[in-house]
Deep mutational scan, measured.
Amino acid sequence: SEEWVEIALRLLELGREANINGTILNLHKEEIEELIRRLLKRI
């Protein structure tokens, strides 16, 4: 399964939302940290 691709796409999506909203992603901080942890486990 290409889970890391899904994770990377989700991170990009959150990054785009952050640019549009001008936020520092506090809302998504925990989700982002969890996604990155899952991503690093696969490398």
Rank of each mutant, 00 (worst) to 15 (best):
E6V: 13
R37N: 02
R16I: 11
E3N: 09
A8R: 04
S1Y: 13
N21S: 06
E17P: 06
I36L: 07
T23L: 13
E6L: 14
A8N: 01
E13M: 09
N21G: 08
E6G: 09
K29Q: 11
L39D: 00
E2W: 15
S1L: 14
E34Y: 08
G15C: 15
S1T: 10
E31C: 15
I7A: 05
I43L: 11
E13A: 10
N26E: 13
E17M: 14
E31T: 02
N26R: 03
K41W: 10
L27V: 07
H28D: 07
L14C: 15
I24S: 10
E17G: 06
A18Y: 06
L40F: 05
N21Y: 04
V5T: 04
E6A: 10
G15T: 09
E17V: 10
E2V: 08
L14Q: 02
L27Y: 09
N26Q: 12
A18Q: 05
R37S: 03
T23M: 08
L14R: 02
L14H: 02
L12A: 03
G15I: 15
H28I: 15
R42G: 05
R42Y: 15
L9V: 05
L9H: 04
L35P: 00
L40I: 06
K41P: 02
L14M: 03
E33K: 09
L25A: 09
R38Y: 12
L27S: 13
V5L: 11
E34D: 11
K41H: 11
L39R: 00
L12G: 01
E6Y: 12
E2A: 13
E6T: 09
E34P: 01
N19D: 09
R37K: 05
N19R: 12
R42V: 13
L9Q: 04
I24M: 05
L39H: 00
L39K: 00
R42W: 15
R10E: 03
L40S: 02
R10T: 02
L11A: 01
I7V: 05
E34N: 12
L40Q: 01
I32N: 00
T23G: 11
L27W: 12
L39S: 00
L25F: 05
E31K: 04
I43T: 02
L9G: 03
L27R: 10
E17Y: 08
I32M: 05
K29S: 13
I24V: 04
N21E: 06
A8D: 01
E3S: 14
I36V: 06
R10W: 13
E31F: 12
A8I: 15
H28F: 14
E17R: 12
H28E: 07
R38K: 05
R16C: 15
E6K: 11
L9T: 03
R37A: 05
N19L: 15
E33L: 14
I24H: 07
E30V: 06
E3P: 07
E6F: 14
I7K: 03
E2Q: 10
E3T: 11
R16T: 04
L35Q: 01
L14K: 01
R38N: 06
E34W: 10
R37I: 07
W4T: 02
L35I: 05
L12V: 05
L27T: 08
N19G: 08
S1D: 09
L35C: 14
E30P: 03
I20R: 11
K29C: 15
R42S: 11
I7F: 05
I32H: 00
R37D: 03
I20Y: 06
I24P: 07
E17I: 09
E2G: 12
L35Y: 04
R16H: 07
I43A: 05
I7Y: 04
E33A: 11
R10Y: 10
K29G: 10
I32V: 08
I36Q: 00
N21K: 07
L25T: 13
I24T: 05
L14G: 01
A8M: 13
G15R: 04
E30R: 11
G15V: 15
N21R: 10
I24L: 04
L40V: 04
N21I: 15
I43N: 04
E17K: 07
I7P: 00
R10H: 08
N19K: 11
H28M: 15
L9N: 04
G15E: 02
I20S: 07
E17F: 08
E13Y: 11
I43D: 01
S1Q: 13
R10Q: 03
L40T: 01
L40A: 03
L12K: 01
E34G: 06
T23K: 08
I20T: 09
L35F: 06
I32R: 01
T23C: 15
E3F: 15
A18E: 03
E31P: 02
E34Q: 08
I32T: 01
L27M: 13
N26T: 06
L40M: 09
R16A: 04
A8Q: 02
H28S: 14
E30H: 07
R38H: 04
I24D: 12
T23F: 13
E34V: 08
R37H: 05
W4G: 01
A8K: 03
L40Y: 06
L12S: 02
A18H: 06
V5H: 06
R16Q: 04
I36G: 01
N26K: 03
I20F: 11
L35A: 03
L39Q: 00
N26M: 09
E3V: 11
L40P: 00
E17Q: 10
R16L: 12
N21T: 09
G15S: 09
R38P: 00
G22S: 07
I36E: 00
L12P: 00
E30K: 13
E30T: 07
G22P: 15
E31V: 10
E31A: 11
H28C: 14
L11D: 00
E30F: 08
I24N: 10
E30S: 07
E31Y: 10
R38T: 04
I36N: 00
L14V: 03
E33D: 09
G22W: 09
L9Y: 08
I32Q: 00
I32D: 00
T23W: 13
I20L: 12
N21L: 15
I7S: 03
K29N: 11
R38V: 05
R16G: 05
R37Y: 09
W4N: 00
W4C: 14
